[in-house]
Design a protein around this nucleic acid. Structure first.
Lengths: 194, 194
DNA sequence: TTTCGAATGTGATGTAGGTCACACAGCAAC
DNA sequence: GTTGCTGTGTGACCTACATCACATTCGAAA
């Protein structure tokens, strides 16, 4: 399958869960997205890049991550189909990327330019509503994860993650799961062998 | 000073930094806010409450926090003037509060009902834009804090916090700063005595 | 002024998880 | 096949921080 069944239908479905657009409106919105394929391991946003798009995942799996001075990686998010990813700080504040995004598996995405997003939000009120909803969801999720970090130990966070996204276990190397949980791969390995 | 100089002017200013509203529009928006005073230590949202408002701080300082089974407190946010606070998860998903909000000092706030917020967002496009912007800012901040948790030790996070909000040091008991940093009060105490 | 409670400091000790080291997979390219 | 590279397990340590216990300071109430 060279392409996901139907990029347009997937996005339409996703948006329709939150707001109602007429077919004309949606066609117009969709015309601003650009479909792209990436190979496993390929970078979408690298540290230092100018960031001007956000990415809607159609197929595959992305990660957004930060690498510190000791070259240690921390994963902010795994992005599965119908999730969005970007360096939102750079995207909104116009700076260079500090967060990188790349492909864990071969992936299909739709890119939306930031200027276009703002234009669409401006022109079509429900689109702005959609993006407010989406960002709000991200915000609540980030707060939850923050609390989990303060509250729970590594084993607890591991079990939480597996309960929430059991699919990850098979798709994602454990190294990356460790980088998401904020523990060393050694510790993670010891966690589920006991 | 029984009341902040002018609640209306403060909110107007705050919103005007992001979007332009006509005076009529703003008056209409403002008419949905309810001003309230709280005493130091007073609860605004308690665990288990039905949550239907968010709070804009005019004066004073609030905290939003979570208390776990071992009765240990974790602080999500200190809300200073012109900041917003609530249990956004409960507010948007209609559940009961798991996050509490109370007053660190005597405070003046403006309350906005969630139904009213949605109504205003619907009726006045720029208002929706404002709230998207605000939520986005919160989202980016939460992600930054997450990274800081994964990346930095307690001392680093402490210095980060003090650099960002030096005012906190004088206003807020160190216990609470510890609860924000996610360390014990003892550890925090040892941090800055060395 | 005294008294009481809350907030803070400080020592002794325990532990989760980090780091380093090395071994052993599995898979891709040749 | 063999060479590598990337992922994973496992042991021996080490360190940051938690916890418990008790001392001290400070502010508000009496």
């Amino acid at each position: 399958m060279p392409f996901p069944m139907d990029a347009k239908a997937i996005l339409k479905d996703h948006i329709a869960k939150i707001v109602s657009l007429t077919d004309e409106q949606f066609d117009y919105v969709f015309s601003h997205f650009k479909q792209q394929s990436y190979k496993k391991g390929q970078a979408i946003i690298s540290e230092g890049d100018k960031v001007d798009c956000e990415y809607f995942v159609l197929e595959g799996c992305l990660k957004s991550f930060y690498i510190n001075d000791e070259v240690k990686m921390f994963i902010l998010q795994f992005a599965m189909p119908t999730w969005w990813a970007s360096d939102y700080n750079a995207l909104y504040n116009g700076g260079r990327a500090t967060i990188s995004v790349d492909c864990i598996t071969d992936s299909q995405v739709l890119c939306l330019n930031s200027a276009d997003r703002e234009k669409l939000c401006n022109e079509i009120h429900p689109v702005e509503h959609f993006f407010r909803w989406r960002t709000n969801k991200g915000y609540v999720a980030a707060q939850k994860r923050l609390l989990s970090f303060m509250n729970n130990d590594a084993r607890h966070r591991y079990e939480e993650l597996m309960a929430l996204y059991p699919a990850l276990y098979n798709i994602v190397p454990k190294q990356l799961i460790a980088a998401y949980l904020g523990v060393s791969r050694e510790t993670l390995s010891r966690l589920y062998n006991s």
